[in-house]
Design a protein around this nucleic acid. Structure first.
Lengths: 205, 205
DNA sequence: CATTGTACATACGGTGCCGTATGGAATACT
DNA sequence: AGTATTCCATACGGCACCGTATGTACAATG
């Protein structure tokens, strides 16, 4: 269960090349972001890590164990973290705008989070268990958007509609970035966000 | 090459159960819409059609031959057809609103087109050859949106931004419908479209 | 220094899929 | 009637992957 067996001596006194469970998870995340859930194969990951399957099955009970770990990582290190990062902004509008920038630019350990986001969505389509987790994460995100839009003065129905609209557009950006980047320009998403914010906060000029 | 060998006698004078190439394509489309491109497997389709692989390899040279046929079907029977259906509307605004409704509700031979749309996008991510075709189709769609928005008075930059924004939101709807339908309500997309149209055509009240 | 546990490597059986080769039944052709 | 053509069934080899069983070098421990 512990990510690092002891913490003191583990990668210095030992052979200095031993893999942790977390190394496998990160490799899985990279594979997921790049080629989708179907690319997350234990024998391929083993090869990419210059190691054999024996290592994998020491750290994980089976493939679905790794997949669960990917969803855990996703649930813990994203969403809440991104939201926390914009809490310092003074106004709801500023927080939402900052959040949009974060969503467009996030990365983790060298993997493009936007690519991974799209891969998680595509995964949820094919795997009902994954879908449950993904829906829960998205509910948190939508919930945050709704709260901030409400603070801006939108009534509940309006806030829900706009929050979902913004998020759907973001899903579109994540999907399109993976095969049609010309379509998924940041400016397009920014425009959508601006339209939604203007719809509740009054027109800017 | 011909979809029906002769046209007169083919499914009446013969055993009345023989499959055409098109039957396979439609079965492939259904499988694609339901489980993604990875579900389009010749042995699975054969089983679903109560037939053996022998049949498949008589009608197709290999699996990628079927996949190309799926893209052909997509290219020919969609996009242009949907656009033609709204040509009778009097104004650009009415045409775009009607197009939005069509995109949300389309179906073909019992398969939900929205589900298939999402599957095509997901497919394009994993298959560069498919991506080329999908991008070409999307370019047609975006192009139409841009033209109509321009007719409404938007300048080129504005029209492109809004067209892509609308389409990205639609991509989000297609993606979300497959695993999180509560997120992909039609009303959400309609709101986005309304915001975009209002941004160019002046505010309604 | 012998023992124990860690972190792998290697080898195996099994499954699902692809594409091919070949055979066979029904229909159309002359 | 006999032959050719159409459409499909069956059988095969091969690959990529999964999970398990077993062996093994090394470090940690008493």
């Amino acid at each position: 269960m512990p990510l690092l067996p002891f913490g003191k001596e583990s990668h210095l006194t030992r052979k200095a090349k031993e893999l942790t469970r977390n190394d496998w998870v990160l490799a899985g995340l990279a594979a997921l972001a790049e080629g989708g859930i179907d690319s997350v194969r234990v024998e391929r990951l083993a090869k990419s890590l210059n190691v054999s399957k024996g290592s994998f099955y020491w750290h994980f009970s089976d493939r679905s164990d790794l997949l669960s770990a990917l969803l855990d990582l996703w649930e813990k290190d994203f969403t809440a973290q991104l939201i926390a990062n914009v809490a310092s902004q003074p106004t709801p509008r500023a927080r939402l705008l900052a959040l949009a920038e974060e969503a467009l630019d996030a990365s983790m350990d060298g993997v493009d989070v936007a690519q991974a986001e799209g891969a998680f969505s595509a995964w949820a389509v094919l795997d009902p268990a994954a879908a449950v987790r993904v829906r829960a994460i998205e509910a948190q995100r939508i919930g945050y958007l709704v709260r901030e839009l409400s603070l801006m003065g939108a009534d509940t129905a309006q806030a829900e509609l706009l929050a979902k609209g913004i998020y759907l557009a973001l899903l579109g950006v994540f999907a399109a970035r993976r095969y049609n980047p010309a379509l998924a320009e940041d400016a397009v998403f920014r425009r959508i966000v601006a339209l939604a914010l203007d719809a509740v906060g009054g027109r800017r000029r």
